[in-house]
Design a protein around this nucleic acid. Structure first.
Length: 937
RNA sequence: GCUCGAGUGGUGGAAUUGGUAGACACGUUGGACUUAAAAUCCAAUGAACAGCAAUGUUCGUGCGGGUUCAAGUCCCGCCUCGAGUACCA
């Protein structure tokens, strides 16, 4: 029998599906193990060879854990809401659900072809109403919660209103809006229900607030920062303006400290944790209030260096700061207005990117130093951002380089408050060596004690207090899109109300057009039936809105990260219609033991999902507050793009090595038209696109040679290599092994099929240990010592490598083992049976076939992993490297139980040693038994 | 600028606590089998020099120093590339 991989693979894939080989039970005596992949967005382009890299690694791990006796949960699903399907719907009118369904079908076929051991009975799709019902449910719970800083967790909003009723809000320690007014219990009772609702919104973990967005009137939509290029929209080049819009927000800032602290107990890659730490951006300092001369208002600043407060020589406000208009003097008005206007034209990105030009304008106003009572001039400058801290800084030019640059540029004084340091040329920011001077009661103190002292002094005079500031901002949760989860929200007198959870899911309505309405409302504004009847508890026609029983529904939808923030918990009990997952299932599976995915989700998905997990833990719906114990990032597989070079304005293409100094336009060509020697298939190129049909070529040696470049694999770069062809040509087992063999999992690497024949040959060689022609040649003969040594070496290394996620070295390990067994002409069942099990996680199809050929009638997937026996590896001699002054000259086989002295004696007596020494007497002989001998001198 | 990661043959990459650098594979070259091809198998393969040969010598893990009997691995200083992040007060 020949190794017919296509036949074998189809057969076993069918067997696994029919027998539900990988179905995980929620009850088991076995220990649990949860292996999770980041689920894909099912795009129209299908799966490329980069996608399966992480999936193959996790599948190997999942299969290995099954052999090791674990009850393994290894699910897969689809993050199926998203922009591309909506974009396609806008262009073609095709409903996004239909496109999505078709794409999922294609993904599934491709995934099945690779032989993953997913439990498909637990599949989830975020766009499925049975799934998003629970996303909506979680949203309602967030709305119904506030963050109590005293208990340091989220609590139901009812515990907050109870406090308000008893004592007002003054003593309440809560995460809330900055502008929350103080009220008493009496006042609370006197408020109307609308007023109460409005106040509660300042506390809820999801809340409506006016948020600045990038509004593009021509497209009728809000754009993300990276959809804007040079101040206009990337698509169409339309103008974009900053606009305030009512948006749902997530109060993730309440969890900043816990998100930061939680990182310490996670086994995640250090760089990824560092990204999250930076993103959360904790800084410790003080909030300081400066009174304004001639005004009642004050300026609040946050500073990490309150100890340098006596070095303040001016203040800088962000140009957008609300006080700017008020405090600017008539003489300065013209200049300030012009500057504010100029700043508004620059995007936040631009402002941040431009570090060199120093700009700013004096407002004419003065603040008052809280201690010296000296006047402090107030400037505006675009290096201060409205969105960070309070949007104002106290400038200390002697201690901060940016303030120093600003002061020098505008000829402002640079008073020095550091002892023994010259700050006239450069700011001094070294906290360790700080000794404060010229600072009244802080003189002579170091950074630490001065900071403590000044905060105390500020508190005494009521001008400030110690504060911890986080960069992490609340996340906008509204999207002006169609293809996302609808909010379970309707509006009564402009105040949001939640639909009762028993009426969920609130399903997406049908619309005629997926574009924003003419009046600029989101696409759901096009729906004719999108009003909530509070008596019938169902969606009814908009025409029935009377604002008494029937109310308008929310028109925004949720963002892409809503469903992905909790899907991993749904897998534990997918299909449950009573709850998002039963307590039994949650308590059994608890958390993800291994999560594999890309590091590009570091500040998005991986932060938001931790936030939701902590919230649901606080409210007792989940047993753990971190959902992924261990996380591994798989590196990206890059494509090798191919280029042809066209002469400008001509239909002439120049071969790569003839380009030289000539001006040419490089054009991406599809890599499938290029062979391994970088030669272009000219006929294929001509028929690729009509404009190339008549193309002329400047050839070298009769060939057109393309240029090559490694880039991200993408459809638009025509460098996508699809796994289907490889499965057809070499089989899934080869693909799986090859993707692992390419190099370390976590490293980015270009896709290159050059070496694929190597792993394919390995599988054929493996096959030939079991079969010769049609004949099965496995014998019951006792295995030799040598055979067992080869096998157990491989078992040991396979175990060690997989625990270190070193999949590439395991593949070579298997190759070595099979090479050795072939050379030994080993066909013993005693060796070949365990061999098929250790290879099974990597090449499951061939392993099943061999396992069955050995006479088993159940799947190899649940066979026990062979036990490693160290006794087979015991050696009694060692081939010692003998080196002279650190250079290895020859090796010498010596018994391992030989003593240090005997080794030294034997080596020195050896004639090769004498030849090396040429009569010299060694100064020193280093003998490390079992390792090395080094002779010095 | 800051933070993190990485630089090893023609190529992808191995190398445990510092202990034989280049495992395994690709490619290349030569050979066997074959009418031929495919497939398969065998051998050689870091560079330079010497030798008919077995073999030997020197150099060699981005660069320059250092520690050590011994450094790809540890320390100091640089260079290059990649990723993340950024007037963060």
């Amino acid at each position: 029998m020949k190794y017919n991989f296509n036949e074998i693979e189809a057969k076993w894939q069918e067997y696994w599906a029919k027998n539900q080989t990988f179905k995980a039970e929620n009850h088991s005596d076995k220990p649990k193990f949860y292996v999770l992949d980041m689920f894909p967005y099912p795009s129209g382009a299908g799966l490329h060879v980069g996608h399966p890299l992480g999936y193959i690694a996790s599948d190997i791990y999942a299969r290995y854990k099954r052999h090791k006796g674990f009850n393994v949960l290894h699910p897969m699903g689809y993050d199926s809401f998203g922009l591309p399907a909506e974009q396609y719907a806008i262009q073609t009118g095709q409903h996004p659900a239909i496109t999505t369904e078709a794409n999922i079908k294609r993904y599934r076929e491709q995934l099945d072809q690779i032989g993953f051991s997913f439990d498909w009975s637990r599949e989830v799709r975020t766009s499925d109403p049975d799934f998003y019902r629970w996303t909506q449910w979680i949203f309602i719970q967030l709305f119904d919660s506030w963050y109590n800083k005293e208990s340091d967790k989220a609590e139901p909003i009812s515990s907050l209103t109870q406090k308000f009723e008893k004592e007002g809000n003054e003593a309440v320690q809560a995460a809330c809006d900055e502008n929350t007014p103080v009220f008493t219990a009496e006042q609370w009772h006197a408020f109307t229900s609308e007023e109460k609702e409005e106040l509660l919104l300042k506390y809820r973990l999801t809340y409506l607030a006016d948020t600045e967005v990038n509004w593009c009137p021509a497209l009728g939509t809000v754009l993300a920062n990276d959809e804007i290029v040079n101040g206009v929209s990337e698509r169409g080049g339309h103008p974009v303006e900053r606009k305030k819009m009512k948006q749902w927000n997530m109060r993730i800032s309440a969890y900043a400290e816990r998100l930061l602290q939680g990182l310490d107990k996670l086994d995640w890659p250090e760089p990824l944790k560092e990204i999250q730490r930076n993103w959360i951006g904790k800084s410790i300092g003080a909030q300081v209030t400066f009174d304004l001369k001639d005004y009642d208002e004050t300026i609040s600043v946050f500073t990490t260096r309150p100890d340098t407060i006596f070095g303040v020589s001016f203040m800088t406000l962000a140009p957008e700061h609300e006080l700017v208009e008020k405090i600017t003097t008539p003489a300065q008005k013209e200049a300030v207005d012009a500057y504010v206007k100029a700043t508004a034209k620059r995007s936040e990105r631009e402002r941040m990117a431009d570090v060199k030009t120093i700009t700013g304008v004096f407002t004419g106003a003065y603040a008052e130093h809280p201690f010296t009572k000296e006047p402090v001039p107030v400037w505006i400058g675009d290096y201060v951002l409205a969105g960070y801290g309070t949007g104002a800084v106290m400038a200390v030019p002697c201690g901060d380089q940016r303030d120093h640059d600003f002061a020098r540029h505008f000829n402002l004084p640079v008073p020095n408050i550091f002892e023994g340091v010259d700050t006239s040329e450069e700011a001094f920011a070294d906290k360790e060596n700080t000794v404060i001077t010229n600072s009244m009661f802080l003189n002579g103190m170091d950074h630490k004690s001065a900071t403590k002292r000044v905060i105390k002094a500020l508190e005494e005079i009521g001008k400030g207090y110690g504060k911890i500031n986080y960069r992490l901002r609340d996340a906008v949760f509204s999207r002006q899109r169609y293809w996302g989860e609808p909010f379970p929200v309707y509006y009564v007198n402009g105040m949001p109300r939640m639909i009762d959870e028993k009426h969920l899911p609130l399903q997406l309505p049908e619309v005629e057009k997926y574009l924003p309405t003419e009046s600029g409302e989101p696409p759901l504004g096009n729906a004719a039936e999108w009003a909530w009847d509070t008596t019938k508890n169902e969606v009814v026609s908009n025409s029935l809105v009377d604002n008494e029983q029937v109310f308008p529904l929310e028109l925004n939808t949720m963002p892409g990260w809503a469903g992905s923030s909790w899907y991993f918990n749904r897998y534990m009990d997918a299909g449950n219609s009573e709850t998002f997952a039963s307590q039994e299932a949650l308590n059994y599976w608890k958390d993800v033991d291994l999560y594999i995915g890309g590091s590009e989700h570091a500040t998005g998905h991986l932060l938001y999902s931790r936030f939701w997990q902590k919230f649901m833990f606080d409210r007792n719906w989940l047993p753990v507050d971190e959902y992924a114990r261990k996380l591994i990032n798989q590196g990206m597989i890059l494509g090798t793009s191919a280029f042809v070079y066209r002469l400008p304005e001509q239909n002439v293409f120049v071969s790569k090595n003839l380009v030289a100094e000539r001006e040419v336009q490089p054009i991406h060509v599809d890599v499938s038209m290029v062979n391994a020697s970088d030669e272009l298939d000219i006929e294929a190129f001509r028929s690729w696109r009509p404009e190339f049909a008549e193309a002329d070529f400047e050839l070298e040696d009769g060939k057109y040679v393309v240029g090559r470049e490694v880039e991200k694999m993408s459809k638009s770069k025509y460098n996508v290599v699809n796994p289907d062809d490889i499965c057809r040509q070499y089989g899934a087992d080869t693909l799986r092994l090859y993707e692992m063999f390419l190099g370390p999992l976590e490293q980015a690497k270009p896709w290159n099929t050059a070496g694929i024949s190597g792993v394919h040959n390995f599988l054929k060689k493996l096959w030939r240990l079991y079969f010769k022609g049609d004949e099965m040649i496995v014998t019951d003969e006792k295995a030799s010592k040598e055979n067992l040594k080869s096998l157990h070496k491989a078992i040991k290394k396979a175990e060690d490598d997989i625990e270190n996620f070193s999949f590439n070295t395991t593949v070579s390990n298997f190759m070595i083992c099979v090479n050795e067994l072939s050379a030994q002409d080993c066909h013993s069942r005693e060796v070949l049976e365990p061999l098929s099990v250790i290879i099974a996680p990597y090449a499951p199809h061939i392993a099943e076939e061999l396992w069955a050929a050995l006479g088993h009638d159940t799947s190899v997937a649940h066979a026990a992993f062979p036990e490693f026996k160290a006794e087979y590896l015991v050696e009694d001699t060692k081939n010692y490297p003998i080196s002279f002054n650190g250079k290895m000259r020859f090796t010498l086989e010596l018994p391992l139980d030989m003593s240090r002295e005997e080794i030294e004696k034997t080596v020195l007596e050896n004639e090769k040693t004498q030849a090396q020494l040429e009569g010299r007497t060694p100064e020193k002989v280093i003998v490390v038994p079992g390792k090395i001998v080094n002779i010095v001198g």
